[in-house]
Nucleic acid binder design. Structure first.
Length: 271
DNA sequence: AGGCGTACCTGAGGGC
DNA sequence: TGCCCTCAGGTACGCC
C-alpha cells in the first residue's frame, strides 16, 4: 500500500495520537508478522512507553522510552489504526493490537499478511541498507546524480530500489518520470545532466505535494485515523492506461518493468 | 554485482 | 450466478 507520503501521514497521525502513552498489553494474533517471536515480543513491549513516532523510508519508526524502537513496514495492505478509548477494535484482519493505559489502542491490520513489526535494540543499525531520504537536505542533486552513475538498470527500476533513494514506490516513480518527461526504461546512468536535474526536481516536488494531500488512496490506503488521502485526484499517469495524456493528449499505456505495472506516455516521455 | 523469476497472501474485478 | 484469470501501493530470496 504505502509509499513515503502515506507512511509520513500515518507517522504524523500516530505522533499526535499515541506519543506519551504507556503500553499496557500486547496481543499478537498472527505470529509470523512480529520479530522476535511473540512471547519475547510481548514481554519486551509490555510496560514500555511511546516517546515519538517518525518515518525512515517506508518504515514507521515508533521510538520507545526504553531506547528500543518498534519498526513497522506496511508492505502492500498494512494499516496502523488508532482505536479511541472505550471503542472495541473494529479493524478487520488485525494481526497485532497494542492497548494503552488509558484503554485506547493501536491496531496493526493487514489483509495480505505481508506487513511486519520488528522490535529493535537501541544500538541496532536496522536502517543500514536504507537509502537517501528524498525530502531531506541530504538529497542534493549532486548526490542523486552520483548514485545514477554507471547504472545500466532502467531508471524506473532504480527509483524503486530502496537502498539508493528510500520511499519511492510504483505510484510516485511513474508520476515523477512522467513529470520529468523521461522514458521509464531508459538506463539510469545514461541520463543527461539536464534530465537528471529535472528528475531530481520532480521527485521532490511530487512527494511534497502528495504529503500535503495526505497521500494517495487508489484502493484501500487510510491514515492512522482511518481517513483516505487526496492525491489520487492529482495523479497524472498512474493507472491511467487508455486515457489521454494530460500533457500531449496521446493515449497512456501500461507496460511491465521488473514485474511491475508501469504507466507512461509513449509520445512525451523520451529515452 | 546485478538482473530476473518466483514466493509470500487475500480480495476485487473482468470475461465468459 | 459463478468460475477462472489477472492484477494490486512491496520486498526477500535463489539462481544465473
Amino acid at each position: 500500500m504505502p509509499e513515503l507520503p502515506e507512511v509520513e501521514t500515518i507517522a504524523r497521525g500516530l505522533q499526535n495520537a499515541v506519543a506519551g502513552k504507556r503500553i499496557a498489553s500486547v496481543r499478537v494474533s498472527l505470529p509470523k508478522v512480529v520479530w522476535p517471536k511473540p512471547a519475547r515480543f510481548v514481554r519486551e513491549l509490555t510496560g514500555d512507553a511511546i516517546d515519538s513516532v517518525g518515518r525512515r523510508g517506508k518504515f514507521v519508526v515508533i521510538s520507545l522510552r526504553s531506547g528500543r524502537s518498534l519498526v513497522v513496514h506496511l508492505r502492500m495492505t498494512g494499516r496502523l489504526i488508532v482505536q479511541p478509548a472505550g471503542a472495541t477494535n473494529s479493524q478487520p484482519y488485525t494481526n497485532v493490537l497494542l492497548t494503552f493505559d488509558d484503554e485506547s489502542g493501536l491496531a496493526f491490520a493487514d489483509v495480505r499478511q505481508f506487513g511486519r513489526m520488528r522490535l529493535v535494540r537501541p544500538e541496532e543499525a536496522w536502517a543500514a541498507e536504507v537509502g537517501l531520504e528524498p525530502l531531506s537536505d541530504d538529497f542534493t542533486f549532486e548526490r542523486f546524480s552520483g548514485l545514477l552513475e554507471g547504472r545500466s538498470t532502467p531508471i524506473k527500476v532504480f527509483l524503486l530500489d530502496q537502498r539508493r533513494v528510500a520511499g519511492i514506490g510504483n505510484i510516485y516513480a511513474c508520476e515523477a518520470l512522467w513529470e520529468a518527461r523521461i522514458h521509464p526504461g531508459r538506463p539510469a546512468g545514461s541520463l543527461s545532466r539536464e534530465r537528471r536535474r529535472r528528475l531530481h526536481g520532480t521527485i521532490v516536488s511530487v512527494l511534497r505535494r502528495a504529503v500535503e494531500q495526505r497521500g494517495t488512496s487508489v484502493d484501500d490506503y487510510v491514515d492512522a485515523e482511518g481517513l483516505r488521502g487526496g492525491f489520487q485526484n492529482k495523479l497524472r499517469v498512474y493507472s491511467r492506461d487508455g486515457s489521454a495524456c494530460f500533457r500531449c493528449g496521446r493515449t497512456i499505456v501500461r507496460t511491465v518493468l521488473a514485474q511491475r505495472g508501469t504507466w507512461w506516455c509513449r509520445a512525451c516521455q523520451h529515452r
